[in-house]
Design a binder for these strands. Sequence first.
DNA 1: TCTGGGGTCCTAGGACCC
DNA 2: TCTGGGGTCCTAGGACCC
Length: 448
Amino acid sequence: MDCSAFYCSCERVFDPSLEGVPVAVLSNNDGCIIARSQEVKDLGIPMGAPFFKHRDELAAQGVRVFSSNYTLYGDMSRRVMACLETFTPDVEVYSVDEAFLTVPTPEGSPEAVCAAMEARAREIRARVLRWTGIPVRVSWAETKTLAKAASEWAKEKLGAGGEPCVCLWGHPDRDDWLERMDVGDVWGVGRRWGQSLRDLGGSTAAKLSRMPDRLLRQRFNVVLLRTAMELRGVSCLPLEQAPVTRQTLVKSRSFGEPTSDVRAISQAVATHAARAAEKLRAEGLVAGRISAFVTTKRFGSGPHRSGGCDEALPATADTTALVAAARRCLRRAYVDADARGRPYRYRKAGVMLAEIRPEGTEQRGLFPIARVASAADRQRQRALMEALDAANRRFGKRTVVVAAQGCPSTLRRTRDGSPEAPGWEMRRERMSPRYTTRWDELAVVKPG
DNA sequence: TCTGGGGTCCTAGGACCC
DNA sequence: TCTGGGGTCCTAGGACCC
């Protein structure tokens, strides 16, 4: 199951004026176009295109453009997934807008099975649409990679105004589609491998599936061999339902404006560390390593630099410990100018946590890397973090912060009295309301 | 002026062991 | 000229995903 133009669909659910109107959603900092409704795709605006290059064209075409509203999309995603689980418990939530489902195959001839499965797909699509307002594609096949290939086919049918529900298994045009499907559209084949495969004569999904195992293993790796086998109908990628513990956690953002101000950057890094710590606690995890990094802009003039430093920690999810460590890392990673004295204009900073484990399972070192707090001190810190999280949950995100994040009360006030965002905060000028998660942002229905 | 953020897995090569 | 055989662990870099 794939949601069609998911972020655009979420925007449309609560704003009927967007129905039939072209819609686009931007990445963080309003930088790139990361979701496009069918109308915008038809205009030829590519995925991931920089917004500023298309701003005028989008305006001229009457495209409604939104900043990304992850609170809304996350909540809508949960609704869609919950709806899928009413059909089968065997659901793998693969991403915010995709899931894999396993269902029993009905008895009968291949043609009959195919027809029955396509009917099932239409049933699922109809229920998700009715319950959540999100249009989806549902496509079946005997392996995940083939199911994704079927989904590509469904996408093509949808673009041509057809029914986006396909069962590849038993379909009379199955081979025809796989012979037509570009190898670059195969799940697991990116730009680099796509070009290499074309050079070796594997320009379509069907051709890739016929390439010899040894060639794939030698020229690429076992991952691509698995992809080829999956295209042959041999399942190599099982349904993953047990949530796995993450290995890393990254929090980073581009700045609204590039800056050389180490104090501002330090506040941004402290904020990322605090947010990462909050997320760690929410997931019941601790981290044993932290790094902080800064990068200048990737494009244009001026000296370019990307630097990071890391530090081992006694496994922790404590905001104060992680913020302090992140600031130490930043101090080592930050360089103000290149060898010729030209200042670096930093565009982005972030924090990465690694060596993550569930709380309570951390391995203690023989030689502690830092003074180990007493049990009583640890208990007090835990209680403090619980109070911090509770206050921020109840009264809003930046209610209680560590001072290193920058103090909200010292910020300039805007006309309505709320604190003005600091310069390093990202641009987000076209955000829709968080319709489903904030009482004060609920949609209002007016009679007549 | 303006180009996102957050992940996973695999491999090669270096350093070390006996 | 020529230098064994069999391992582990770690890291950086490259590929992929959404």
